[in-house]
């Protein structure tokens, strides 16, 4: 009997440690980021991060201003979200409300395939196909712009938005729909004025999760946005995101240098941003009962 109890206890602890593994990993990552970034506070000082020039390798003066990287990430993310929202939501509405079961069975695997395309492949596709297209359509000198990156990132956000929105729309009680139809509303009116508003919280959360994915994406943006660290809100300029900066420069940097530490600060800012986005969307999902309390 006692042996049995011991066994149960061991298994319980084992399962517990498996469950808390992700928390431990996150804490360790944060710890490591801060450990590597910390000496920057002493020299050259934290205010070096708060200005508008990122030029970490220079014969003149090394500059570690994070603003162009942050605005670059924000511009690309916001544009990608704007592009992805209509496709994602309308797609979700179609799949959950309009499509026949046969169509649904056909469409859903394709959305999953889109979600599973490796980002390098998407980046290469962007470099060879989308960039020249953007260049020709808008008459630009180069196709390597924030817009090109946003279009590709929208491809990555659409599956996330679609599948979670679809769940939200599905979980709208059918009594709402039936009541609306009984009152004489057409199917379209019912969908846009009853079902979608009722599922709005889930849709908002899906959009935020999609944004979380887009902010953290590296390879695709590095290949197609041109990586010029300028502060710009114009979608037709080249911009540099935080992720691309880390990926492009971490391989070349001298360990322990100011540049190295600055890159870790970029990582900290990036992690805080994605953390915040995920927190907010989790809260929204939880509040409306889409995640078990």
């Amino acid at each position: 009997m006692n042996k049995q109890r011991l066994k149960a206890k061991i298994i319980k602890y084992f399962l517990q440690s498996c469950g808390s593994l992700s928390i431990i990993i996150i804490l360790l990552i944060f710890l490591f980021l801060f450990k590597e970034a910390l000496p920057f506070i002493g020299s050259p000082g934290l205010n070096e991060l708060f200005h508008s020039i990122w030029n970490p390798v220079s014969f003149q003066k090394e500059e570690f201003g994070l603003y162009p990287l942050i605005t670059g990430s924000i511009l690309v993310t916001v544009l990608a979200t704007i592009i992805a929202i209509p496709f994602g939501i309308i797609g979700a509405v179609y799949i959950s409300e309009v499509a026949t079961p046969g169509e649904r069975e056909f469409l859903k695997p394709f959305i999953e395939i889109l979600a599973g395309i490796p980002s390098v492949v998407l980046g290469f596709f962007g470099l060879v196909v989308i960039a020249p297209l953007v260049k020709d359509i808008f008459g630009l000198n180069t196709g390597l712009t924030a817009l090109t990156g946003s279009i590709l990132l929208a491809f990555m956000a659409i599956p996330t938005i679609m599948s979670i929105s679809e769940d939200a729309i599905k979980s709208v009680p059918s009594a709402y729909k039936e009541a609306s139809l009984a009152l004489g509303a057409s199917k379209l009116e019912t969908i846009w004025k009853v079902v979608v508003p009722a599922a709005l919280s889930g849709i908002v959360a899906s959009v935020m999760l999609g944004m979380g994915r887009v902010v953290g994406e590296t390879m695709t943006v590095m290949m197609v946005t041109g990586n010029a660290p300028v502060i710009s809100m114009n979608p037709f300029t080249s911009v540099r995101t935080m992720t691309a900066t880390i990926a492009a420069e971490m391989g070349e940097v001298t360990f322990g240098s100011h540049h190295y530490m600055a890159l870790f600060w970029v990582g900290i800012v990036l992690m805080l941003m994605t953390f915040l986005l995920n927190m907010v969307s989790y809260r929204v999902l939880k509040k409306y009962g889409m995640i078990d309390k």
Partner: peptide
Amino acid sequence: KENFDPSVKLMPASSSIAQSISQDKW
């Protein structure tokens, strides 16, 4: 030994430099 302008593009690989030179104006 002057700095590059910030709007200068940085490409992740030599092949993408060649790719964008062969496509982009100027």
